[in-house]
Design a binder for these strands. Structure first.
Length: 286
DNA sequence: GCCCAGGAGTGTG
DNA sequence: CACACTCATGGG
């Protein structure tokens, strides 16, 4: 990548490593102390040194900083988030060490595809599936990078073509998604309240409650969404003694975390995955 | 080889 | 409503 444009900005608090490597997004690669990724049609390199975030990109756009700031949700008031969640005895102590972990804002279409593919797979595999899709169907970008393929680009692929990308049974869902969900529908859904957005997402093939909540949170930026996967289910049982079906756990989270349930979920998710890799728990049981 | 993964869809009691 | 079963596969 021949980066010619260079910018600096401050997003605070921010821990780029925590934010880009915790399973919200699957397209950033860590290389020699910086992060390489694609936002829209822009190849971007990010490097954090203290409070300074350095952004490098190809010349061509003058709003690269705004692009990155939107992706990292620079306008989120993390202090307000943590103040609100600090009333929760379980989260209050450990979450201070995670204040640099920010929710990211993904492209809506990319989020639907990514999390529909993410069912019943681990993160390395999800990463590979998406990488293969991008390399086969995404627009060519400088430096051998690829944009995330659009709905129209993916429509050209048959179910077998998609299965050849290692998608398994998910190939059929993606094939249908390309025919049911277009830019028009996405534009319309942006203005819906969360509960209606969620209902309409669940109507899509391959999208159930969990995927709809991931898409609501990461794609449509609804911070009240609380996706419950196996890790969160485990964490809620262990830390809160809370067990049951999706509806019950979701209701518990909504009552407890309210408008910032998405951040609470990210803290719990990070912690649960970390301790399974022989780390120690950041949160104390209730 | 075995186990499990940021589950969804479908059928049954 | 709650379960049970299937789906297809690769990474650890």
């Amino acid at each position: 990548m021949r980066c010619e444009m260079k910018f600096e900005t401050v997003i605070s608090p921010l821990d780029l490593d925590l934010t880009l490597a915790c399973g919200q997004t699957f397209r950033w690669r860590r290389l020699e102390g910086s992060w390489l990724g694609v936002l829209g049609s822009e190849v971007i390199r990010l490097r954090q040194e203290g409070r300074t975030l350095t952004i490098e990109a190809e010349p061509g756009r003058d709003d690269i900083v705004a692009l990155v700031e939107e992706h990292l949700r620079a306008r989120d008031d993390i202090r307000a988030v943590q103040r609100k969640l600090s009333s929760d005895r379980v989260l209050s102590s450990g979450m201070r060490d995670l204040k640099g972990l920010r929710i990211v804002k993904l492209d809506e279409w990319e989020s639907v595809v990514s999390f529909a593919l993410a069912t019943y797979a681990n993160i390395p595999r999800i990463t590979k599936m998406i990488e293969t899709l991008c390399s086969k169907y995404g627009e060519r970008l400088p430096g051998g990078f690829r944009a995330f393929p659009s709905q129209r680009q993916l429509r050209k692929a048959s179910i077998n073509d998609l299965a050849d990308c290692g998608l398994g049974y998910r190939a059929k869902y993606l094939h249908q998604l390309c025919r049911y969900l277009g830019p028009g529908e996405i534009a319309r859904m942006k203005s819906l309240p969360y509960d209606e957005l969620r209902e309409q997402l669940i109507e899509l093939p391959g999208v159930g409650e969990k995927v709809a909540d991931c898409v609501s949170l990461f794609g449509f930026g609804r911070l009240e969404a609380f996706p419950i996967d196996v890790w969160i289910e485990r964490a809620m049982g262990r830390l809160y003694g809370e067990k049951g079906n999706y509806r019950k756990l979701r209701s518990f989270a909504s009552d407890r975390f309210g408008a910032y349930a998405g951040y609470a979920q990210e803290y719990l998710y990070y912690n649960e995955r970390t301790i399974s890799g022989r780390g120690s728990c950041m949160f104390s049981e209730q």
